[in-house]
Amino acid sequence: MNKEQFLNQLNASLTRLSLEERQDILQDYEEYFAIGMEQGKTDQEISTSLGSPKQIAKELLASYHLGQVEQTTSAGNVMRAVWAVIGLGFFNLVIVLGPFIALVGVVIAGWASAIAFILAPVFALLNLIVSSFQLFDLFFALGLCGIGIFMAMGMFVATRALTKGFIRYLKFNASLVKGGLKND
């Protein structure tokens, strides 16, 4: 493993830590590589003697978590953990699934009525075969068809906008759950 690979793997294993702290840690190891290479070692040798970056990350994370629990038994911290645990199950079920079902319902209803309106003349003509045909019905159906086409166009735009909006809401929700009541 060369220097880049070592530092990348370490960085990737430390995403739980704040950016500042991570940079600080990476800087320590960069310094270590720099001095070692000045002394004539290759970066392969140095990374071998340092050991596995995953193991190092484990040690760093363990002391970080212990520190968190020790320092802050604050309500915010506890809430954050509770949110994180419940959040991914129950919270998402209600807060995400609820609006999702409602939105899907609206979209399906909109499309269904648009399509029904568009097909209205077809039904009017079917009426011709089945039972008494009235010209008024046909004109009315043609009118509905026009409205239906407009509705379909509207629904097309609305569906796209709603999908986009919902994805944003999902992202917001994910960060809310993950970050919880982060106040640092």
Binding site: I25, D28, Y29, E31, Y32, I35, G36, S49, L50, G51, S52, P53, Q55, I56, E59, L60, S63, G67
Partner: peptide, 30 residues
């Protein structure tokens, strides 16, 4: 002393995984 120096001094005498000294230094600094 600086980190590299500490690691080298120790690993000259006893066999350690050199990477684990920095986590220790961080913890003791905290």
């Amino acid at each position: 002393r600086y980190g590299y120096e500490l690691v080298q001094r120790i690993s000259d005498r006893i066999e350690i995984s050199e990477g684990s000294v920095y986590p220790l230094l961080r913890r003791l600094t905290k």
